[in-house]
Structures are given as structure tokens and as C-alpha cells.
Amino acid sequence: MTSAPEFWLRGPIDGFPDLFQPIVHALLQAQDEIHALMKEFPSELLWKRPAGMASPAFHLKHIAGVIDRMGTYSKAGPLSQSQFDYLKKEGIENNKLTSQELLVQLDLQIAKFLKLLSTTDPKSFSEFRPVGRAQLPSTVGGLLFHAAEHTQRHFGQLLVTVKVILAE
């Protein structure tokens, strides 16, 4: 983490509508803290599941996947086969992946999502968007916000898991 204030205390981020600033701040803060946490985390520990908790690798993959899926739903799109395949593999152990590779995947999804945010019309915030095969009701704003809050939630779980693993 940097010594700078948290993103929400740095003022507006250029290129994003005011309505979306909290979403941008939350994603950038999580990204910054995830990088700091995982900077020297050994790749061979990525799939450890202390006390049956989800592994660090799962959290990193899941955060990237949720961000991607929420972006698709916010545009009223169905998930692609590759998104379904990614979802199925989020928790499947893959010892070939490194911490760095998972951070690159995360960064790519965050960058893609931020680009989407920068081009989303704030007037669409309350527009209906169906979610999943069951077509559950949400809105553009609900999906965009969920990407940020879900990221924060899983970062918290990742933080605890990593601390427990490193203390073992």
C-alpha cells in the first residue's frame, strides 16, 4: 500500500461520472491493497485452504470473474461460453498459476471494467438488467455497485486467508 490517502479521500478520478466515483474508488483501493498483500506471496501457497476456507487463488480468480460478469450483465448481455467456463474453473486447483499471473488477470478485468464505467451513461443507472439464467431483477447501477462491493468483500476474505497461511 502507498502512503497516500485511500482512494475515496483523493478526490474525483478524472474520466468518470460523479455517480460512479464510489465504484471507481472501491475498485482502485481493492486493487492497490491486493497488490500489496500478494506482492511476495509464494505461488506454491495459492491453493492452501486453512480451516477449509477458500484459497487465495480462488479469491483472486473469483474477483476477476465477478467483475467481468457484472460488466456483461450491466450491458444487458448474456454470459459467453468462456465466461461460464471460467466460472466453473474458479475453484479448481491449478498449480501452474502464479501469484503474478493472477494479479495480471485481475488488473486486466479491473481495467476493462473501469473503461466500461467511463463510457456508461449515468442516466442508465436505474435501468432494468436481468441477471443469470433465472433472469433475476437488477439495474445497471446495482450491477456496477455489486462488482465493487463484491470485490471488497472477497478482498477481506483474501486478507484473512493470506494472514492465516503466512502465520502457519
Results as ranks from 00 to 15, higher is better:
residue 1 M to A: 11
residue 5 P to R: 03
residue 10 R to V: 02
residue 13 I to F: 07
residue 18 D to F: 00
residue 21 Q to S: 07
residue 23 I to H: 04
residue 24 V to Q: 05
residue 28 L to K: 15
residue 28 L to G: 07
residue 35 H to Q: 14
residue 36 A to P: 04
residue 37 L to K: 03
residue 40 E to Y: 08
residue 42 P to T: 01
residue 43 S to T: 04
residue 45 L to S: 15
residue 46 L to K: 06
residue 46 L to V: 09
residue 53 M to A: 13
residue 54 A to H: 14
residue 55 S to A: 12
residue 58 F to N: 00
residue 59 H to L: 06
residue 59 H to W: 12
residue 64 A to Y: 03
residue 65 G to Q: 04
residue 68 D to W: 09
residue 80 S to T: 15
residue 81 Q to F: 07
residue 87 L to C: 09
residue 87 L to M: 13
residue 91 G to E: 10
residue 93 E to Y: 05
residue 96 K to V: 06
residue 97 L to W: 04
residue 98 T to V: 04
residue 98 T to N: 01
residue 104 V to P: 05
residue 106 L to P: 03
residue 110 I to R: 07
residue 111 A to E: 14
residue 112 K to G: 06
residue 113 F to P: 05
residue 115 K to V: 08
residue 118 S to V: 00
residue 121 D to P: 00
residue 123 K to D: 01
residue 125 F to I: 08
residue 125 F to S: 00
residue 129 R to W: 08
residue 133 R to F: 13
residue 137 P to T: 04
residue 137 P to G: 01
residue 138 S to D: 12
residue 139 T to L: 07
residue 146 H to S: 01
residue 147 A to S: 11
residue 151 T to F: 14
residue 152 Q to R: 13
residue 152 Q to N: 08
residue 153 R to L: 15
residue 154 H to S: 07
residue 154 H to M: 11
residue 159 L to D: 13
residue 160 V to I: 14
residue 161 T to C: 06
residue 163 K to L: 00
residue 166 L to T: 12
residue 167 A to L: 11
